[in-house]
Design a binder for these strands. Structure first.
Lengths: 210, 210
DNA sequence: GTCTATAGCATGATAGAC
DNA sequence: GTCTATCATGCTATAGAC
């Protein structure tokens, strides 16, 4: 293939991996894991099928590497967003709902990742571990928020963190299904109301009979 | 196939459809849409491949029929749960989180349905319409709750309904990834706190400066 | 390491007997 | 309507030249 040679000539040999991963993201997203053929992925990357097997060994492993790459980027992004502190962290998540739910590729890849993970124990562990990392970061953010404002929520930090990420994913899903039903800021507003309600309940529990 | 004839002999010809749908649910769940072969589905149902094509016309249509069947059942179940009124309705959703997220088949079918829907516009509309039906029922429940308790939440009924279902799906996801992190009753407790917080905010907005 | 070519197999769908 | 048998195609993965 002339195009293959042209593209390979431009980048170094080490770059083939990145080109392949990007092409894999495109094709896996659009066709699904089983629907994607290594031929098409290689074609989209401008390399040959042989390259895939020499670098990744198998189609399954290529997908796995892709998953890991995306999860790493995701975790970094969340942590960076959280660095601004509790309020900034919430706003960052709000933006993430809008952005990731608007991106077609991200939507399709997330769906494919989830379906594969539910079917394959090894991938499931990988994803669970990732979610756990995000929730640890969220829990740290909650702790910091308590320290700064003095508010107590009456539930363990971990449980609140689980609620924060669950609501996040739930709103992503909703946005993807019907974008108009999730206005910007909804995530933040909801979390604010939830925190307030939890704090109220906690205060009420301290005064039995009330 | 001896077994095929045996099973067909037991049920009427009209039953073939149901048997096929059940087998399809099993195989589509375990292998994914593309990974499932019509041969295996026919085998699991105890009929021949020809039956599938005479009754459903194509593999894609078989999956579509399966989707519709499950969505109808789901909607009926939700509406039945809501019939008990606001408190009972919440408890029903809480039970649904535990049950559907524990069922392997439901988990895998939901994942496959979602992935297919995101990729295929026709299926996406189908799923969006279903979700809309559930949310209408939820909005009616919210209206009823307001009427009975007199509480105002400061947000439109539809928006609150969207939050209820989004949180539901988010917690289902979380439960499926890490069952231990979603104790029974978490959904109800969270919604209670959220309602309380929203009502507080609404009351606060009526008294600017507070 | 990357190419081309191909092996070896599974797939969705159809034809025609009954 | 359901069966069996088959077609045409597409697939993952490998072999061997360079």
């Amino acid at each position: 293939m002339a195009e293959a040679r042209r593209r390979r000539a431009r980048g170094g040999a080490a770059r083939t991996r990145e080109v392949l991963l990007q092409a894999a993201a495109e094709v896996f997203a659009e066709r699904g894991y089983d629907g994607a053929s290594v031929d098409e992925i290689a074609g989209a990357a401008g390399v040959s099928v042989g390259s895939i097997y020499s670098r990744f060994g198998s189609k399954r492993n290529l997908f796995r590497q892709l998953m890991t790459q995306y999860m790493e980027r995701d975790l970094i992004r969340v942590r960076d967003g959280f660095a601004a502190g509790p309020e900034g962290g919430l706003r960052a998540l709000d933006d993430l709902v809008q952005e990731t739910a608007t991106s077609r590729r991200q939507t399709l890849l997330d769906a494919e990742t989830w379906a594969s993970a539910m079917r394959t124990p090894a991938l499931r562990s990988l994803l669970a571990e990732h979610e756990n990392g995000v929730q640890s970061a969220a829990a740290a953010l909650v702790r910091r928020g308590r320290a700064e404002t003095g508010h107590e929520f009456g539930v363990p930090d971990d449980e609140l963190a689980v609620l924060l990420t669950s609501l996040f994913h739930g709103l992503c899903r909703q946005h993807r299904l019907d974008p108009g039903s999730v206005p910007p800021g909804l995530y933040t507003r909801t979390v604010t109301a939830l925190s307030r309600g939890l704090a109220e309940q906690a205060a009420g529990a301290d005064r039995p009979g009330h």
